[in-house]
C-alpha cells in the first residue's frame, strides 16, 4: 500500500524491535559468550576459558547419549507424526460422521499446557496407573512395567507422549489448510475415478506441500528444543541417561549441575542441529513448482 510519507512510519516498528532485541536476540547471542566461560552457577563470577568447554562436552559420554536420544526422538516422532496427521486431517476435512467430536478431541492437546500434560501422564504411567491397569485388565500382565523408570522404555514413552499431543493438533491444522483449497479439484479427481488414497496423496498432498514442509519444520524444532519440560516433569533424564536429550541436558547442566559453560556449548550444538534439520526438511519436501500455493 504505497503512501507518500511511508518511510517515516517505520519508526513505529522501533519499540517492538528494541523489545525483541533485548529479550530475544540478546540472550540468543549471549549463549555464544557463555559457552566460552567457566561459570559454576549463577551466583559466582565467571572466568574466560575460550574453547575449553567444547573439548569437555565432546568427550563426555552423557553428551553422546543426549545426541543419540535427541536424534532418535526427532527421527521417530516427526516421520510418524506428519504423514499420520496429514491423513487424519484429510479425513477430517471430508467431514465424516461425528467429525465435530473428532475435531474437538484432536484439538484438545493443543489447549493443555506441557506441565498439565506431564501431570496427566504422571498418573497414567505410574506403576499402578492407567496403562498398567489396562494391560492387567486384558490379561497382558507381563507387559506392565514402570514405563518411566525402566531404561528400555523411558525414551520411547516420552516419544509416545509427543505423538499423543502432536498428531491430533497437527491434523486439525492440516484440515484447516485443506479446507481452504478449491473443492472442485478434489471432486474432479474423484469423478475421474481416482481412489481415495490416490486423491489424497497425488492431488491434495502436492497442493499443500509447502504447508506440510512448514509444519514439519515447526514440529521438528518444537520437539527438538522443548523436550526439556516434559523430561523434567517425568523422568529427569533417567534412569541413568536413557532419556536425556540435548534440550534437557542444557537445562540440567545449568540448574542442577551448575556448569553454565557446558550447558551453553550444548545449547549452541542444539541450535546448529535445529538449523541443519530445517535445511534437511526443506530439501526433502521441496515443492515441485514455486507457484504451489
Amino acid at each position: 500500500m504505497p503512501s507518500t510519507k511511508s518511510p517515516r512510519v517505520l519508526w513505529l516498528t522501533v519499540p517492538s524491535l528494541v523489545w525483541f532485541a533485548v529479550f530475544s536476540v540478546g540472550p540468543l547471542a549471549a549463549m555464544f559468550v557463555i559457552a566460552t566461560l567457566r561459570w559454576k552457577g549463577l551466583l559466582y563470577e565467571p572466568t574466560y576459558i575460550g574453547l575449553e568447554n567444547i573439548g569437555r562436552v565432546f568427550a563426555d559420554p552423557t553428551f553422546h547419549a543426549a545426541v543419540r536420544n535427541s536424534a532418535i526422538q526427532v527421527a521417530v516422532a516427526i516421520p510418524v507424526m506428519i504423514p499420520l496427521a496429514f491423513m487424519l486431517g484429510y479425513h477430517l476435512n471430508t467431514k465424516p460422521r461425528g467429525y465435530r467430536v473428532l475435531s474437538v478431541l484432536y484439538f484438545s492437546p493443543g489447549l493443555i499446557s506441557i506441565s498439565m500434560t506431564g501431570m496427566i501422564f504422571y498418573g497414567v504411567l505410574s506403576p499402578n496407573g492407567g496403562v498398567n491397569g489396562l494391560l492387567r485388565g486384558i490379561g497382558l500382565d507381563s507387559w506392565a512395567t514402570a514405563w518411566l523408570a525402566d531404561p528400555s522404555t523411558a525414551l520411547a514413552t516420552l516419544i509416545a507422549i509427543d505423538l499423543w499431543r502432536g498428531v491430533g493438533w497437527t491434523a486439525v491444522l492440516f484440515a484447516a489448510r485443506l479446507a481452504s483449497l478449491p473443492a472442485e479439484v478434489i471432486e474432479a479427481a474423484q469423478i475421474d475415478g481416482a481412489g481415495r488414497l490416490r486423491t489424497m496423496w497425488q492431488v491434495a498432498f502436492p497442493m499443500v506441500k509447502d504447508y506440510v514442509r512448514t509444519l514439519a519444520m515447526l514440529q521438528f524444532l518444537w520437539t527438538l528444543f522443548t523436550s526439556a519440560a516434559l523430561i523434567l516433569l517425568l523422568t529427569k533424564g533417567g534412569p541413568g541417561t536413557s532419556s536425556t536429550t540435548l534440550s534437557y541436558l542444557v537445562y540440567a547442566k545449568a540448574f542442577s549441575q551448575r556448569d553454565l559453560g557446558y550447558s551453553q556449548v550444548v545449547g549452541v550444538v542444539l541450535l546448529l542441529f535445529g538449523i541443519a534439520g530445517m535445511f534437511l526438511i526443506r530439501a526433502l519436501l521441496r515443492s515441485p513448482e514455486e507457484d504451489s500455493r
Binding site: G26, P27, M31, T226, Q264, G267, L270, L271
Partner: peptide, 13 residues
C-alpha cells in the same frame, strides 16, 4: 527459533 534456545541467558538477563 523456539524461545527455549535462550533460556539460560534469559535467566542471566
Amino acid at each position: 527459533i523456539p524461545p527455549f534456545a535462550a533460556l539460560i541467558p534469559t535467566v542471566v538477563l
